[in-house]
Design a protein around this nucleic acid. Structure first.
Lengths: 187, 187
DNA sequence: TAAATTTTGTGACTTTTGACACAGGTTTGT
DNA sequence: ACAAACCTGTGTCAAAAGTCACAAAATTTA
């Protein structure tokens, strides 16, 4: 749990009591490669803090996985819509390699909110950070051409393609695999 | 202010005290068509609840406005990144027609959070709703073709084009104006 | 470690979308 | 009410990206 505590302390004030209260919401889990953290049709009841490894969120389009997000170390993975509206998730999340996470239980977290203002602030900041990342990625589709989108990704995450295969990156950028392969060849 | 109160009451429990506390954060404002709610380079210090009219968020790309979001009645307009990290906004927001809003002051809202748990829950839900909308729009770029993206928009918001011009809708969908005009002609 | 599976690169061709140009409408503001 | 600004439709052409096919490389797994 130490990785999460460290993370929280860098972003807000957090008392020993708050930490203890938050601890009741947490559990450590480990997923093997390709193991699901959230399945389509299930209601998302967790926020996962990635300690090691990484995960992806994806949509099933005619049998093909279209990747909507990747979550790396020190990031939070969840499906906001399903989590906050208790609706069935249209997206799945799975581990892309052996991944250790700290699972934050939604129900317990909501209880903790009522007891600790610091925890609710933390919860809000988690959402804000997930959202900011999403906003940037979303806008890149309107502002950039496919090639620029690729260049932008590489400049922000230089080792992205070392961890994520070209095939998977392609659907994330909304580009065909072949076109992405050619982009890479050019530069 | 009644429109906001009504809105809040449909989404959460809200006591008379919370409402009074929240009221200190609010002010009613009116913007003329094309008047800015947020300028590029300014730090966003507000969340705007749209009472009537509508606004858009846009990015300036070589002098052209690329629209990243539209906000209609009963929705909240803000730039999350600038708002939450107190950074300079890369996006501007302006009224697309004469628009009445309730401005929620960020600083005062943060103070109110410390006093009322109900208000903090409200704040969290506002972000969640903005985020869910954004997530859907973002994913539509990965899942759909330009044509499908257009069809999808029209099926969700049948009167979108009655309010937003084709030219403005085009950049929002990441499609050229001409192509969008042809999509519309087909169906 | 060998076989099976997945991933990647590349060529040839097709489809889609964009860019430019221009004419006709519509809205806005003075 | 008139001019200016803006919006829309449409034709032609060019560019970008997608699709299909297949071989080579890398990775996984039995």
């Amino acid at each position: 749990m130490y990785s999460l505590r460290k993370y929280i302390e860098t972003m807000s004030d957090f008392s020993e009591e708050s930490w203890k209260a938050l601890n009741n919401c947490l559990s450590e889990m480990e997923f093997q490669k390709n193991e699901p953290l959230l399945k389509v049709g299930d209601t998302c009841s967790s926020i996962f803090f990635i300690e090691s490894g990484f995960c992806k969120s994806f949509y099933n389009l005619d049998g093909k996985e279209v990747n909507t997000a990747f979550y790396f170390e020190d990031e939070f993975a969840t499906n906001i819509k399903s989590l906050t509206s208790s609706s069935k998730s249209e997206y799945a999340i799975k581990a892309c390699e052996k991944t250790k996470v700290i699972r934050i239980d939604k129900t317990k977290l909501l209880e903790a909110y009522t007891k600790s203002h610091q925890i609710e602030t933390f919860g809000r900041k988690v959402l804000e950070s997930v959202m900011t990342k999403q906003e940037e990625h979303s806008d890149s589709f309107k502002i950039f051409t496919p090639k620029q989108r690729f260049d932008n990704l590489i400049s922000k995450y230089p080792d992205f393609l070392q961890r994520v295969s070209l095939t998977q990156t392609a659907t994330y950028l909304g580009i065909s695999r072949e076109t992405l392969s050619r982009f890479r060849a050019i530069k």
